[in-house]
Amino acid sequence: MKLVLFDVDGTISDSQAQICAAMDYGFTELGLPVPPRAAILSIVGLSLPEAVARLVPDQPPAVQDRIVAYYKQSYMAHRKVEPAPLYPGAAELLHRLAAREDIFLGVATGKSRRGLEALIAHHGLEGLFFTRQVADDHPSKPHPAMVEAALAETGVAPGAAVMIGDTSYDIEMGRAAGVATIGVAWGYHPVADLVAAGAGRLVADFAALEAALEEFLGESA
């Protein structure tokens, strides 16, 4: 058996509108300057407290905690009105992969368990992911804990696993855990960042991703 792990935000789901709106709300409520959109997208993938700390390292922990609380409030409100869409082709590929008998499918995400479960339920992805590693249970990416937990849960060796993501944090996390990595070009970090992080492969669309996975699964058989 092999293990195929996906990041969520920026890889499966295009949640940038909700993320930016929630961060805007958190900063505005405290009368703080809202970070540029590029800066907000640069921290997608980190756990929320770590993301906020990177955006405002000069603010005391109490202020950072209030930004986190306002962010969660806004994000949940937006999610109820307009859940983040999946990228075209994402659901179809996930269903094809989940139907295979030679792999475990999983996610390793900076989202909370509640956020991930809401996304899965909204888009009809129940039953696809054997392992779900979320920010509630682990240190923030790029710490390898999420991938290591997924390997332990499935019993798969690092050489038979691959981490797929759109940020340098995903690539660094996968490499730290000793698994193969695939960077996707449609997400929130520039391709140059994925290259610098050491991505084993880069793909431009879901068709190319599926082809890369077929190659990986064949090589790791």
Rank of each mutant, 00 (worst) to 15 (best):
H138I: 04
E210M: 13
D193H: 15
M173H: 02
V147E: 07
F129R: 12
D137N: 08
F206W: 00
A157L: 15
H123E: 07
P144K: 09
A204D: 12
A135W: 03
Y188R: 02
E172S: 07
L119C: 10
I164G: 03
E126D: 15
A176I: 04
A192K: 12
E148G: 08
G127D: 08
G200M: 02
T167K: 04
V162Q: 07
V134T: 13
T131E: 02
I164Y: 15
A150D: 08
L116R: 09
A157V: 13
V203Q: 11
P190E: 00
R175N: 06
P139G: 05
A211V: 08
G183C: 10
D137Q: 12
E148L: 15
H123F: 05
T167Y: 13
E117T: 05
H189W: 10
A204F: 12
I182L: 13
P142R: 09
G200R: 09
A150K: 10
P144S: 06
G159Q: 14
V162Y: 00
E172Q: 14
A180T: 08
L116C: 10
V191P: 01
V191R: 02
E126H: 10
P190C: 04
D205R: 03
I171F: 06
E117D: 15
H123Q: 08
M163P: 01
G159A: 14
L202T: 11
A208H: 14
Q133E: 15
G155D: 14
H138Y: 08
A176P: 11
S168I: 00
A118H: 11
M173Y: 08
A180H: 15
A152C: 12
A204C: 03
A152K: 14
Y188A: 00
L125N: 03
A145H: 12
P144L: 13
A135T: 07
A185I: 03
P139C: 08
T167N: 08
G178I: 10
V195E: 12
A180Y: 04
